[in-house]
Design a protein around this nucleic acid. Structure first.
Lengths: 217, 217
DNA sequence: CTTGACATAGAACGTATGTTCATGGTATAA
DNA sequence: TTATACCATGAACATACGTTCTATGTCAAG
């Protein structure tokens, strides 16, 4: 499912052209940029890009192109600065955090649009809606939306969404591995609250929190 | 510098078309949408729109259109979903909240771009950066960005930014006026914390909190 | 070697689409 | 009234642009 160098250049040029002019390039413009003299070759490669899911085409329509989600996670709207993050589900203290095994694409989920001012776009972003008031110690309340980067490990100080296996609990805390005692300290964001300590084998990290959005009332 | 109803519909259709398909419409597509049978009329009105600064055109280019900002200082660019909110300053417990007397424009301040998914755009929105950990009872921490609507009154249940005159303190709390005792209860968002009670004359409401954005780490 | 899948080139074709022109209606001001 | 600016119509035209067809080259599998 990989792209050839040519196809990658074509894809990047299409995105750049849309960003700079406001409309997609023609077959001939793409050919000129990438160094293809034949329109049929460009057309052929555009069809390949479409089959691989990178673009959508509209038949017999000039500039009938659009770049769609190139891969799972965050996806750009080429025409503007904002981008989409899939809302993968709900996070609640008592429930396991069930995420799709494979990469999930924005086409399968509700999404929330973010801007670069809020968070730099990157692959593997997803969002969760908070249910219940159990995350208040992380300064996160019912209804808040947390944006996470999918990863299964963490560095000290990261705010992570983790599943505590023995307790059967999902939690949002700052992660600190204490080497000397080989235990993990999970520190609430609220400095007035006490940390909890768990064994490294008892924790399953689901992702790193990179932003929180609260819509008041 | 005003637009006719037709021109406004054309502009809106162009924006919608770009948003939905990824490329601008043709002259004929615009005509069909707006109810103009003649391509020259559409062309004529497109030129008017261009002269008035609402769009840019590229000659002899199919779909060579782009919607641009209708005028400098406008709060949002019609071609994308995002819009700008001025960051008016800093909010901290110990400091008075000094806001400009007159309406302030985004040209005079740093801004943060938001999307409609986060908050519906409206006039009189502004943002404040939180300094210090004194607002933790409102589930707002150092570095968070709160989005407010400028208003000097509040309804019961609103989360407001208020200045407590006697105490010389700024605070973020939910506002409840208790008619029987004629006092105002300011309720922390964190349900484990206790409310405070103030006399109505002792409170100066600066705005209503409509969203909170946290960039973690 | 032959076969077939894949990538490329060039040219011819049809149509989608912007441009232009001749014409006319409706206002408002002189 | 006449003049003028503005807004609209429909048709003809030129070309920008997607589609298709034939031909060629490469490479791995049989």
């Amino acid at each position: 499912m990989d792209l050839t160098a040519r196809q990658r250049r074509m894809l990047e040029f299409i995105q750049r052209h849309v960003r700079e002019t406001g409309y997609p390039p023609t077959i001939r413009e793409i050919g000129q940029e990438v160094g293809i003299s034949s329109t049929s070759v460009v057309n052929y490669n555009l069809n390949v890009l479409q089959e691989k899911g990178y673009i959508q085409r509209t038949r017999e329509t000039s500039r009938g192109l659009r770049v769609v989600a190139p891969r799972a996670g965050a996806a750009w709207h080429p025409e503007n600065e904002e981008y989409l993050v899939p809302i993968a589900g709900v996070i609640a203290a008592g429930e396991p955090l069930r995420l799709p095994e494979t990469d999930f694409s924005i086409t399968d989920y509700e999404t929330i649009a973010l801007t670069r001012d809020i968070l730099a776009p990157e692959p593997d972003l997803f969002a969760l809606k908070v249910k219940g008031e159990s995350m208040i110690d992380a300064l996160v309340n019912d209804g808040d939306i947390v944006i996470l980067r999918r990863q299964s490990n963490a560095e000290n100080g990261d705010m992570v969404a983790a599943w505590l296996i023995d307790e059967g609990e999902t939690t949002l805390k700052r992660f600190y591995w204490e080497r000397e005692t080989n235990r993990v300290r999970l520190q609430p964001a609220n400095p007035t609250m006490q940390p909890i300590f768990v064994h490294p084998a008892n924790i399953e990290i689901k992702g790193k929190v990179v932003a929180v959005i609260r819509q008041v009332q």
